[in-house]
Simulated scan of single mutants.
Amino acid sequence: MFLPPLAPNFDAALRDAGSRDARFRMAAAERLATPEPGREDEALKALRRLADDPLGPIREAALTGVGFLGDPSDLALLEARFDDGHVAVRQAAVRAAARIEADPSWLLPLLDDPREEMRFQAVDALAVHLPELAEAHLLPLLDDPDARVGSAAARALGALEAHGAADALAAKLDGPLAFDAAVALAELGDARGEPSLVRALADRQLALDATEALGLVATDAGRDALARTAERFFAPLLLRAAAGAALARRGDARGVAALDRVLRAWRADGRDYAVHAAGELGLADLVPALARLVRRLRGADPGVLAAALEALAEESEPAREALERLRRRFRFEPAES
């Protein structure tokens, strides 16, 4: 039976960076990305060596660490890996270089790179590191021959609140980018993608994203679809909690009832989502259910529960009382105002 090595301490990771055993070199590369304070230079020296490891996954982990710890002097090492034979290594090199380089304009030519994985990675990096130029350069990528690149461009435009892209995104609602365009439109407050989002509620892989997007734009049709999702007995509780939160966000009372059912459910999956939503949305009607969790957590995270009760405490005496009981039980300090 294969057992991976335990995560090494920092000194062991420095030693294992030169191990003959690839498992130990891999564990070392992952550990060295978070060095002990004051020992960053030692970690970086070892990671630079591991960036030339014969195994792609180890090079990938090492380059990720260099991205967290390195400086512009590492750019040559990273750029050399843009042509690595391992796809994930090339992508890690782009991400790392984008973190280090003060002027990320070098990302722009990568948007035209013949390799789809490089275009994909450039889209994500551009949205994070050069957002002021992203809209103009990402719009053409909605027509990229690789659907993954087009999907990444659509999501990035939504995340960047690029309202000027709304019509271009809406034009993609009948093609392979329909779902990602619909999510992006929802982030722009545009409901034109609602039918695509409603259809996606039946897809296990897309349902959670669709639910959260509908929470931003759902009309009557979308709210009814969310209510049906929240009441599906065999649906994952996380999805039912998300549907309840989306309904509550849209001002639909069915959302509070759905969240209450998740908070009281026997299974714990979805409970923290519901607790967080109660606090985030200021749902005072859920304070009794939250107070019951103070007495018996039933899988709820006490930190998430404390944050929710703190958010409700100003307007609710029962929430304040429940919060005090929780603090006494777990010795939480009051949140700083």
Rank of each mutant, 00 (worst) to 15 (best):
R228I: 09
A165N: 12
L107F: 11
R48E: 14
G299N: 04
L157R: 09
E280I: 05
A319W: 10
R48D: 07
E101L: 09
Y273M: 05
L78E: 11
A154K: 11
L157T: 08
A168N: 03
A242P: 03
A166S: 09
A7K: 04
D21P: 02
E194L: 06
A268F: 15
R59N: 07
A306F: 13
G279V: 06
A154M: 12
R232P: 00
R249V: 07
L133Y: 09
L286S: 02
H163L: 15
P131K: 02
S196W: 07
R90D: 06
A277H: 14
R261Y: 05
R119C: 01
L142K: 11
A248G: 14
A7H: 01
D112W: 03
T64K: 14
A62L: 14
L63H: 05
E314L: 12
L197D: 03
F120Y: 12
E116P: 03
G270S: 05
A33D: 08
A319S: 14
A274N: 13
A213K: 06
E280G: 06
V87N: 10
A170Y: 03
D112E: 12
L188Q: 11
A181D: 10
L55M: 12
S105Y: 01
D190S: 12
G175M: 07
A278S: 15
P334R: 10
A202F: 06
R49V: 13
A227K: 11
A76Q: 14
R250V: 04
P114V: 04
E212R: 15
R298G: 09
S151A: 05
A235S: 13
M118R: 02
H86L: 07
A221H: 09
P35V: 04
T219I: 00
E116V: 00
D53N: 10
E231P: 07
A181N: 10
F234V: 10
A227H: 11
P35E: 05
D124L: 03
S151M: 01
A243Y: 14
A207L: 08
L312M: 02
L283F: 07
G56T: 07
R49G: 12
A154H: 11
R25H: 13
A178L: 10
E321T: 14
E317H: 10
A243E: 07
D203Q: 08
V123A: 04
E333W: 12
G279L: 09
G85D: 15
G164L: 09
L206Y: 08
L130P: 04
A300Q: 02
L185S: 13
P195V: 08
D53I: 09
R15Y: 00
A152V: 02
L110N: 08
L139K: 14
G303W: 08
A51T: 03
R261D: 01
P37K: 13
E60I: 06
L326W: 02
P57K: 09
E101A: 15
R264L: 14
P72Q: 01
E315H: 08
A202T: 04
D301H: 07
